[in-house]
């Protein structure tokens, strides 16, 4: 999935979560408490996701794998293939 699309989808999701929760809270007497919980949930979960996402955006080093792992990835993951070109 494209990084911009992924970022936009998750951001809009938590933003809508907060906004819809804020609006739904008007129907209840404890709206202050519900509002506080909804906004804190959105902020905490978004922050945890964003740290993970941004950390993987520009990796400095890649993982190191053995032959068995490489063969497993080639077998099960569609983007891993064996080609005929020269290796770098």
């Amino acid at each position: 999935m494209d990084k911009h699309v992924a970022f936009m989808v998750i951001t809009v999701f938590w933003l809508l979560f907060a906004i819809i929760g804020f609006l739904v809270s008007y129907r209840y007497e404890e709206r202050g408490l519900i509002r506080c919980c909804v906004i804190l949930t959105a902020v905490c979960c978004y922050l945890a996701w964003m740290v993970t996402f941004v950390m993987q955006l520009n990796p400095l080093t890649g993982p190191r794998a053995k032959q068995k792992i490489i063969l497993g990835m080639i077998t099960y993951w569609p983007r891993s293939i064996i080609h005929d070109e020269k290796d770098p």
Partner: peptide, 17 residues
């Protein structure tokens, strides 16, 4: 993803980052 040619993958000493 892992994209290697056949010679590299089936080398017994294959160990790569």
């Amino acid at each position: 993803s892992c994209r290697y040619n056949e010679t590299t993958v089936y080398d017994p000493a294959f160990h790569v980052t």
